[in-house]
């Protein structure tokens, strides 16, 4: 059984662990680091509940090996809040009722956060396109779009 010593910078802090080759990034985040904000939904690269930023880009962490993240930067939903202050995307989800059951929310927020880094004032179509790999089974997309728009306006 192949073990690998990896170091991954998660939310600004370097974490080292010894992991099996087949160990998935989402399990590293949830089970090794105890950061359970990142959810496991479909576990088949469809739903996006496990979305985290890998070197700044949103990816589905159920389909990345932990060893592939060695030496790289990961940001999870826990990394959005800074010094007790919510990220605009978090504030947007709160203000616009962007969540119902909340299961997809961490992934939605990470994708939304990454979109706003690249596109300061996205159109509704751009927002919908960006979140097309994140599924909300409450079908609360209208308010999710509003939440991203709120964050975009807040960041202006």
């Amino acid at each position: 059984m192949a073990m690998h010593k990896i170091t991954v910078t998660v939310n600004g802090t370097a974490h080292s662990a010894e992991v099996e080759s087949r160990f998935l990034l989402v399990h590293f985040i949830r089970e090794v680091l105890g950061l359970t904000g990142t959810h496991i939904g479909c576990d088949t690269t469809h739903c996006g509940a496990c979305t985290v930023l890998l070197d700044g880009e949103p990816v589905k962490s159920c389909t990345v090996l932990a060893v592939q993240a060695h030496g790289r930067r990961v940001m999870t939903v826990e990394g959005l809040e800074r010094d007790g202050k919510l990220d605009p995307i978090q504030e947007g989800f709160m203000q616009e009722h962007g969540l119902q059951c909340g299961f997809c929310t961490p992934g939605m927020m990470m994708t939304g956060h990454a979109l706003l880094r690249r596109t300061k004032n996205p159109s509704e179509a751009e927002i919908r396109q960006a979140i097309s790999g994140n599924l909300c089974r409450c079908t609360g997309y209208v308010n999710i779009v509003k939440a991203v728009q709120y964050a975009a306006a807040k960041q202006q």
Partner: peptide, 9 residues
């Protein structure tokens, strides 16, 4: 191809 998150990888 797939969705935007998949296309990042």
């Amino acid at each position: 191809i797939a969705d935007p998150l998949v296309r990042n990888r």
